[in-house]
Simulated assay, not measured.
Amino acid sequence: MMKKILRTAGVLAVASASVLGGVTAAQAAPACSTARVCLYDDYWFTGTTRSFGWVTYNVGVDANDKASSLNVGPPTDPNSPYVYFYVDQNFRGDSVVFRAGNASNDLRGLYMTPTRNWDDEITSVWG
């Protein structure tokens, strides 16, 4: 229920901001440190926040399958600016790639299969 309320509020906020200033999800996201990814339990970068390095074999029990939005910090090496998120530990299963500095405010809009989205699915990170 809380995610539904946050999503509705977030859609209204971005719709308003888009009309006024063209704010993107990455611009609206809180900053994430260099060579880190920030995972948020709720949409629009809210709820419990957890930060992980670009190489994380398993995000752990507290974060596993809980991310509903995410932000990727700047790279340490500009020649390697991509981070892969995996559905299983040890970089296995379906994956999605993000470029450093990009974010997603609602992982329900990002699909790994036609019927399965990335909301509450991230378990490991490789960058």
Results as ranks from 00 to 15, higher is better:
Met2Val: 14
Arg99Trp: 10
Ser95Tyr: 14
Thr76His: 04
Ser95Val: 06
Val59Asn: 06
Val14Trp: 01
Pro75His: 11
Thr8Ser: 06
Trp44Gly: 06
Leu39Ala: 06
Ala35Glu: 15
Val87Leu: 13
Ile5Lys: 05
Gly21Glu: 15
Trp54Pro: 00
Gly93Pro: 05
Thr34Glu: 14
Gly47Val: 05
Leu12Glu: 08
Asn64Tyr: 00
Leu39Trp: 11
Trp44Ile: 08
Phe98Leu: 08
Trp54Arg: 08
Gly101Asp: 01
Val11Arg: 07
Gly10Asp: 00
Tyr84Cys: 13
Pro81Gly: 09
Phe45Lys: 05
Tyr40Ile: 08
Ser68Met: 00
Asp41His: 09
Gln27Trp: 12
Ala17Gly: 04
Asn102Phe: 12
Pro74Asn: 14
Ser33Phe: 10
Gln27Phe: 09
Cys32Val: 06
Val72Gly: 01
Val97Phe: 11
Thr49Lys: 15
Cys32Thr: 01
Phe45Ile: 04
Ala31Met: 15
Phe85Asn: 10
Tyr84Asn: 14
Ala28His: 00
Pro75Lys: 03
Val97Leu: 13
Gln89Arg: 15
Val87Pro: 05
Pro30Cys: 11
Ser33Asp: 15
Thr24Met: 06
Val14Asn: 00
Asn90Met: 03
Gln27Ile: 12
Pro78Ala: 08
Ala13Asn: 09
Ser69Lys: 02
Gly73Asn: 09
Trp44Pro: 00
Val19Leu: 10
Asn90Gln: 05
Ala29Leu: 02
Cys32Phe: 00
Arg50Trp: 14
Phe91Ala: 11
Leu6Cys: 10
Phe98Ile: 03
Leu70Ile: 11
Tyr84Val: 11
Ser16Glu: 11
Ala26Thr: 03
Ser33Pro: 15
Thr56Trp: 09
Leu20Gln: 07
Ala13Arg: 13
Val83Pro: 09
Ala25Met: 07
Ser16Gly: 13
Tyr43Gly: 05
Ala26Pro: 02
Gly73His: 03
Arg7Lys: 13
Ser33Asn: 15
Val97Gln: 15
Pro78Cys: 02
Asp88Gly: 07
Leu20Pro: 03
Gly21Trp: 15
Thr76Gly: 11
Leu70Ala: 10
Gly93Glu: 01
Asp42Ala: 05
Ala9Trp: 09
Arg36Cys: 01
Leu12Ser: 09
Asn79Glu: 11
Pro81Glu: 10
Pro78Ile: 12
Val19Glu: 10
Ser68Gln: 03
Ser18Asn: 12
Ala9Gly: 10
Thr34Gly: 01
Tyr82Glu: 05
Phe91Val: 04
Val87Lys: 04
Ala17Lys: 03
Lys3Pro: 15
Gly22Thr: 03
Asn64Cys: 00
